[in-house]
């Protein structure tokens, strides 16, 4: 299950979505994703509406997300919504509430419910 490939596809879809680009034009954030079972870290970066993804630790991240690799993969592939694992305690997030809401909306705009 390649989480990096899922993240890169996710970033590409964000960048192709005009409404998202407009919505995120003033949202520049670094997000770290930690796959707890494989202990591998990834990052997503939003820079004036443009999203990029990569592998490795994200120093100075504003938002940290941790879950099992399969859960992160399924969320960023649109197979599941983040809400279900979040309310079950399987997805943990650290960061400001408005940033979390923003990320939730991004997944919602790309994948729907």
């Amino acid at each position: 299950m390649d989480l990096l490939a899922a993240l890169e596809t996710f970033a590409e879809q964000c960048n192709q979505n005009q409404r998202l680009r407009q919505m995120n034009r003033d949202w520049s954030r670094l997000v770290e994703l930690w796959a707890t079972d494989t202990d591998q870290r990834y990052w997503l970066k939003s820079d004036a509406g443009s999203i990029t993804a990569g592998i490795g630790e994200a120093l100075e991240a504003e938002l940290k997300i941790s879950a099992r690799n399969d859960i992160l993969h399924d969320i960023f592939s649109g197979i599941i919504t983040p809400t279900e694992p979040y309310n079950a305690g399987d997805l943990l997030v650290k960061g400001r509430q408005d940033d979390m809401m923003r990320l939730d909306i991004i997944t919602l705009l790309i994948w729907g419910e």
Binding site: N87, G89, L92, K94, Q97, M100
Partner: peptide, 15 residues
């Protein structure tokens, strides 16, 4: 500490 979530009691009681 175990589940630092804004869903708080929803997560804890569920588990």
């Amino acid at each position: 500490g175990m589940y630092p979530s804004s869903a708080a009691i929803r997560v804890w009681i569920r588990r």
